[in-house]
Computed example of a mutant assay.
Amino acid sequence: MKKRIVIFGDSNTWGYDAKSGGRFNEEIRWPMVAAKLLGESYRVYEEGLCGRTTCLDDPFNEGLSGLSYILPCLQSHSPLDMLVIMLGTNDCKERFSLTGANIALGMRRLVMKALAADVWRDKPNILIIAPGPILKECELSDVGKNMGKCSDKSYELAKEYKLVAEELNVGFLDAAPYVEMNDIDFMHLTEDSHKVLAKKVSEVIKNTLDNKEVKI
C-alpha cells in the first residue's frame, strides 16, 4: 500500500490565486506538486479550505474550525502515515482578538487531537508548518477589510509553533524562508512560492517516512 499523507490547511493549501480570485491548478498548488515530487509510492490527500482556523468558529462563516473537522477528515483517509498542518493565518483576524501565543494553543489542541486519533498505520507522524507571515500592506488592501489588524501577530507564529512542536515531539517547519506573498492582497502565496514550498515539504516527508516500512 502507498504511504498516505494528509495535508491540512486553509486557502494557501487550497491554492487561492489572488490575481484571478479563483484557484491555482494542480500543476501549481503545493500539495499536488509535492505529491508529484514524492512519486508513485505516496498518496497525498489535499485538504485545504479557505478561511479555516485551528480551532475557532467564525461568526460569519460556517464550518471553518479545523478542530471540529480534523477527526472525520483523518478517519476518511486512514490508515495514515503522516499529517501535515499549515494553519494560523485566519486565526490572526482582528475579530478573534488572539495573540500569537493564543493561536499556538489552538494548534496545540489540533495536534493533540490528531495524535490521539485511531487513524495511524504505525505511529503518528505530524509536521506543523508555520505559515508565511501576512505582510503589513494586507491591512490596507481590500482583503484587509475582513482581516483587520493581522500582520504583527502573524510574525509570532513560527516561534510559538516551534515551542508546541518541541513539547509534543512532532516535526516543525517555518515556511517563511521558502515563500513570498503576492502584491495584491499580501497574504496569499505567489505561484513560485507554491513550487518552492512543495519541494521543501516533500523533502521533509521523505526524510520522515522513506526509511519506515509500510504495513498493509
Rank of each mutant, 00 (worst) to 15 (best):
residue 133 P to E: 15
residue 180 E to S: 10
residue 164 V to P: 08
residue 183 D to L: 08
residue 101 A to W: 02
residue 34 A to H: 09
residue 39 G to E: 11
residue 88 G to H: 04
residue 19 K to S: 07
residue 123 K to R: 11
residue 27 E to D: 12
residue 190 T to A: 08
residue 18 A to G: 02
residue 15 G to E: 13
residue 50 C to G: 10
residue 71 L to G: 01
residue 51 G to M: 15
residue 193 S to N: 12
residue 181 M to A: 04
residue 105 L to V: 06
residue 100 G to K: 04
residue 46 E to A: 09
residue 104 A to W: 01
residue 85 I to C: 10
residue 178 Y to P: 05
residue 21 G to E: 12
residue 216 I to L: 09
residue 134 I to L: 06
residue 4 R to N: 15
residue 22 G to R: 12
residue 92 C to K: 14
residue 192 D to Y: 01
residue 86 M to W: 08
residue 166 E to G: 08
residue 77 H to L: 04
residue 190 T to I: 07
residue 188 H to R: 07
residue 183 D to I: 01
residue 107 M to E: 06
residue 87 L to W: 04
residue 41 S to H: 07
residue 164 V to T: 08
residue 15 G to A: 09
residue 194 H to M: 07
residue 61 N to V: 14
residue 32 M to Q: 09
residue 75 Q to W: 00
residue 3 K to V: 01
residue 177 P to Y: 07
residue 4 R to Y: 00
residue 23 R to D: 15
residue 20 S to I: 09
residue 209 L to P: 02
residue 133 P to H: 15
residue 31 P to A: 05
residue 34 A to M: 02
residue 176 A to D: 14
residue 122 D to R: 15
residue 157 L to H: 01
residue 56 L to A: 02
residue 76 S to E: 13
residue 154 S to R: 11
residue 152 D to N: 06
residue 9 G to L: 08
residue 128 I to F: 08
residue 211 N to Q: 02
residue 105 L to K: 13
residue 198 A to S: 00
residue 123 K to L: 08
residue 216 I to H: 12
residue 212 K to E: 11
residue 32 M to T: 13
residue 191 E to D: 12
residue 48 G to Y: 12
residue 187 M to C: 15
residue 30 W to T: 11
